[in-house]
């Protein structure tokens, strides 16, 4: 089991991380952050394998991955 921590306030909602997640666990949240973006959110934390593809793809370095 792995843990994703998303810096919601600096996420710009580009969604590039969602495209590279092998388990398709990431999607834009319905919430809006203080800069007006829908930040990314993980749907099922327990399914995350901690591959960190999302973090490596993220242009804004908002994702921290622990395993």
């Amino acid at each position: 089991m792995a843990k994703l921590t998303i810096a919601v306030e600096t996420c710009k909602g580009c969604g590039l991380c969602a495209d590279v997640c092998p388990r398709h666990l990431l999607a834009l949240s319905k919430e809006i952050n203080s800069r007006g973006y829908h930040p990314i959110a993980i749907s099922d934390q327990d399914q995350c394998i901690g591959c960190a593809f999302c973090a490596r793809m993220c242009p804004d370095a908002v994702i921290k991955v622990e395993k």
Binding site: P59, D60, A61, K64, V65
Partner: peptide, 27 residues
């Protein structure tokens, strides 16, 4: 839990001004 990946300390805390999806941030 061990850290697999986190933002390097060689980047400051200042949020990048680049547009969403701009790959400057990756570089």
């Amino acid at each position: 839990m061990a850290v697999v990946y986190e933002k390097t300390k060689l980047l400051t805390d200042k949020p990048l001004h680049y547009c969403p999806g701009c790959t400057h941030g990756i570089i």
